[in-house]
Write a protein that binds this DNA or RNA. Structure first.
Lengths: 245, 245
DNA sequence: GTCTATAAGATGATAGAC
DNA sequence: GTCTATCATCTTATAGAC
């Protein structure tokens, strides 16, 4: 995995973020630039998620974090450096969880793995309400949704941060669907990726479209529907399936 | 349909956009603000698609269009007005085509409609290379992908411009899948929407992920995979389907 | 580590000449 | 319709005091 060192998952969720707690431990500057002041990261995460990279000013970030603008530069060197730090922080956690879930599933089932089981292992860690509830994760998911749909640098960013786990997933899918052409596995994952990020983004569109019948924020239902949809999509790759004809 | 009047499809594709042709016809100001100088719209479309709303300055737009900055305000009043005009222009065309395709399919098949047929009617007009090739449409699709994944105002914008056709689609799907719960139809469409916009966005991510095996720009294959995937997703809503268990 | 002050330039929008 | 000129404000980033 090409991802550089990440901070331990436990200490991360300092969500209220209004009163900055007296930070302890080693100074962040010593660690190559990936770590930094949590309050700034939290503020930037929320703002980037809502307005995108260019829609946010460092003044807004520093004001929300309760620090001075110059401090942002001290920690993250540039606006882009701040963005990368925000993006990496939870990506590292997410990747570790998904990798662990896929490994555990493979070890438990071996040759008895199914498409559905793989989708559960891949999707549940992201969408399960119990694990990633909270405004910080919600903001982060909204951010990923935007980046995934941003031309050129968005695609490159997603590749840089998330590819290892996805290749692991596709390797396992290949074993479950040995008849499926390689390219179609990638295309199918691509569809799943679009559906997943839009769902994670919680843009409110589904709520408006359904006249309130469905709620974007209902992650429990979202997870169920996501697994069902993704499973159906991959299963359709089996030769002889009616939908693939 | 709540969309206000749109310009005729024929004259739209003035793609080269380097030398601005001497425009003829009635002055655009007289038409409520939705019409305007095509060169400005083309330039703004390309730039908004690549950098998002906040990533573009009116100076960049006017420079690319070969006109003065003040002229943008003359035609479109504000940056937001320009964006809305860009977004509406091709949305109106797209809606008309999709509505026509759905109507034709319903009239031709009646009670013999299928999920696959509906997906073809809904998706082909968008993805078929022959109809919407060209840098203008490509930019527009990339723009839609970003808007669809933008929180709050993105969802509202998509709703405002595209909902009528989508409700028409869901009405027809309801007749083909009468056993499917209403909410699940919306959720399934939501998944299709995410997959479709990411595909239309052509971010280059699929190319990177697959190591060049798949090409985002291969819209012909994209259309086939998209139809197959969406069909499988909706078919899974039938009670008793293995993937829905 | 955190702040003040400020550089150096870009931004959306407008007034008014032609 | 199209341009020049300009306003008032905001932008990222840096230098340097404490």
């Amino acid at each position: 995995m090409s991802l550089s060192g990440h901070s331990p998952p436990g200490e991360l969720e300092s969500e209220p973020a209004d009163a900055r707690p007296p930070r302890r431990g080693r100074p962040p500057k010593a660690e190559g630039g990936s770590a930094g002041d949590t309050a700034i990261l939290d503020a930037a995460e929320a703002l980037f998620a809502e307005h995108g990279f260019d829609g946010v000013t460092l003044r807004q970030v520093s004001k929300r974090a309760g620090v001075d603008t110059a401090l942002v530069h001290y920690y993250f060197s540039s606006k882009r450096g701040l963005f990368d730090a925000v993006f990496l922080r939870r990506a590292a956690i997410l990747n570790e969880e998904r990798l662990r879930a896929l490994d555990a599933y493979e070890r438990a089932q071996g040759a008895r793995m199914t498409v559905r089981g793989l989708m559960e292992a891949f999707l549940r860690p992201v969408l399960e309400p119990s694990t990633h509830t909270g405004p910080g994760w919600r903001s982060y998911f909204a951010l990923v949704a935007q980046v995934n749909n941003t031309p050129v640098w968005g695609g490159e960013t997603m590749t840089r941060y998330f590819d290892p786990v996805i290749h692991r997933l596709i390797d396992l899918l290949r074993r479950v669907l040995p008849e499926a052409p390689e390219a179609e596995l990638y295309w199918a994952y691509h569809m799943v990726s679009g559906a997943l990020t839009l769902t994670m983004g919680q843009t409110g569109r589904l709520d408006l479209l359904s006249g309130g019948l469905c709620a974007s924020s209902d992650l429990s239902t979202a997870a169920d529907r996501m697994v069902a949809f993704a499973t159906a999509g991959f299963e359709a790759l089996r030769p002889g399936t009616s939908t693939s004809a």
